[in-house]
Amino acid sequence: MIQAMLLSVLVVSICTAIHYLVLKRVSDTIAQRKSAAHGQNLGLAVGAITIAHVIEAFIYTLFFLWAVQGLQIGALNGSVPAGKPTTMMDYFYFSLVNFTTLGRGDLTPVGHLRFITGIEAFHGFLMITASGSFVLQVMAGRAPLSDKG
């Protein structure tokens, strides 16, 4: 269980740092482009945030693989046909579904992987909520995290 907790702290730290850096960079870019239309700024924000979320879910995928195949502290069971191994794409799909808190249930974590899964859903919810708040501020014509303008 300690390994799952430490992995969770590490992956949350990495993904939060990535998320902040993306939002900060977008905010600074918006502040520098004062003459850009709100639609362009909104497009930049939504595009960058979408890419950031996908990257963050992929990082969780790598941590799930590490937990299962490297540390052997859990497994991912589910809709994979009998005798066929769970692929990286299965893990990535599971991570995306979990990060967005959709939780389809066709793949099920077992063992201590359940703890990391719960942390990912909670963290994904926080990151998506922060992104929503950021987008609303961009729609209002602000550069929320910028100190450049």
Rank of each mutant, 00 (worst) to 15 (best):
I55S: 04
I18C: 04
I51A: 15
G70Q: 03
R104K: 13
K24F: 06
S35Q: 13
S35C: 05
N77G: 04
T50C: 05
G39I: 04
P85W: 09
L42M: 05
S95C: 13
P109T: 09
L113M: 11
I51H: 05
G103R: 14
P109V: 06
I59G: 01
L107D: 03
A67S: 07
H38V: 12
L76C: 09
G83K: 12
V26F: 01
F63P: 00
T117D: 15
A37E: 12
G43F: 12
T117C: 14
L107T: 04
L42F: 14
L102F: 13
M5K: 09
T101C: 11
L6Q: 15
T108Y: 05
T100D: 02
G70P: 03
Q69T: 09
H112V: 00
E120S: 08
G83M: 10
I18M: 11
G105R: 07
F92I: 07
H53F: 15
M88F: 10
G111Y: 08
S35E: 10
V46N: 05
L76V: 07
G39P: 00
R25L: 08
H19R: 03
M127W: 03
I18D: 01
L10W: 05
G105S: 11
A57G: 04
H53G: 06
V54T: 13
G43I: 12
H38N: 05
G74K: 04
V12D: 03
G103Y: 11
T108H: 06
F63I: 10
S79F: 10
L21G: 02
V12T: 14
S27W: 04
T117A: 15
V97S: 15
H19F: 11
L76F: 10
A57L: 01
G70E: 07
L62F: 15
S79P: 00
T86P: 01
L96I: 15
L96P: 00
G74N: 03
F94G: 05
C15Y: 01
L10C: 08
V80E: 06
F64N: 08
P81H: 13
L102H: 13
A67K: 01
I14H: 07
A36K: 05
V110Q: 08
L113Q: 06
Y20N: 04
I55G: 02
T117I: 09
V110W: 00
N41P: 06
R114G: 12
I18Y: 06
G74C: 05
L44C: 07
Q40T: 00
T87L: 14
F115I: 11
A48H: 10
Q69R: 15
Y20T: 00
A17Y: 11
G111Q: 05
V80H: 06
V26M: 02
M127C: 14
S13L: 15
A52L: 00
N41I: 02
G118E: 13
H123V: 09
V68Y: 03
R25N: 13
D90H: 15
G39Y: 14
A36E: 07
T16P: 00
F63R: 02
